[in-house]
């Protein structure tokens, strides 16, 4: 019955506990979420709220203790790793790009789930790598060595690698952790553009409330292993919610753009 609805990704009553010295520490306690095609969703929560665990369950690199994840209506358990990688790409926090490779070579590693030739690449591979580099604004980096890249450039290369997978769903794991503000904004502008150009569905795990509320039309808040709020940022991110889930006193203010923003309470 879930299968009939064919959401991009659907999470049903997910439970997960990490093994910890013989005992198990519950991280997720019944998370349910439905993500439709083309959505742009920010998943926020305090440290330890379980958001990175949730992302791993979505990517299929962890299996839930109870509940299930359905990708395009089919349980992730029924997909093989390669099949998942053709539908879902993950932009990690940081990856050590293996030194000695050129950017184009690393981006081509994103073609691995589609690989058909024993040694060479197909015309589709070449076209996909080119399009990925172009769309990630990394075309002029193609021939550079990965060791010569700045932080922002590395991020673009990782985006290109994810795009080379030609995924339907892009998962971002706190992708701005190591970027300055200008690069953070530019990354999300790129992601927003790509979502339209490539009809991507995007789920981003974020800890930055400002970024989430400014750039994402839908925000889900994870607190102590449960989704405690889910909706448009102006509905979800009230001062009360922030105080409860993040333990920080904030108040609303109207910015010069006429929109309401959360700011830290003064003393």
């Amino acid at each position: 019955m879930m299968a009939a609805q064919r959401s991009m990704l659907e999470l049903g009553a997910l439970h997960y506990a990490y093994p910890l010295r013989g005992a198990r520490r519950a991280v997720l306690r019944g998370v349910g979420l439905r993500i439709e095609r083309g959505e742009l969703l920010a998943l926020i929560g305090a440290n330890g709220s379980g958001k990175t665990t949730l992302l791993r369950l979505m990517a299929g690199t962890l299996r839930p203790d109870a509940g299930d994840v359905w990708l395009e209506g089919r349980s992730l358990a029924a997909w093989d790793r390669r099949g998942i990688a053709r539908r879902i790409a993950v932009l990690p926090q940081a990856v050590d790009l293996p030194s000695g490779f050129r950017v184009a070579e690393v981006v081509e590693m994103g073609r691995a789930p589609h690989a058909r030739r024993l040694f060479g690449s197909t015309a589709q591979d070449v076209a996909a790598v080119h399009a990925a580099l172009r769309d990630a604004d990394a075309l002029e980096l193609a021939e550079r060595g990965v060791d010569e890249l700045s932080g922002g450039e590395r991020q673009r290369v990782l985006v290109a690698m994810a795009l080379a997978q030609e995924p339907a769903l892009l998962l971002l794991d706190e992708p701005t952790l190591h970027l300055d503000l200008a690069h953070q904004v530019s990354l999300f502008r790129t992601i927003g553009r790509l979502r339209r150009q490539r009809s991507l569905t995007v789920v981003a795990v974020l800890h930055d409330l400002q970024l989430a509320s400014a750039l994402f039309p839908r925000v889900a808040v994870l607190d102590e292993g449960r989704i405690v709020a889910d909706g448009a940022p102006e509905q979800v991110l009230g001062p009360e919610m922030v105080r409860r889930t993040f333990g920080v006193a904030m108040e609303e203010a109207t910015g010069i753009d006429g929109r309401r923003h959360l700011v830290l309470s003064g003393h």
Binding site: A59, T61, A85, A89, V95, D96, L97, P98, M109, A112
Partner: peptide
């Protein structure tokens, strides 16, 4: 190809279908 993917680290290799 699999060996090249492993150079990216286990987690990213897994994300790329290995």
């Amino acid at each position: 190809r699999q060996l090249n993917l492993l150079l990216l680290g286990d987690r990213q290799a897994e994300h790329l279908g290995l």
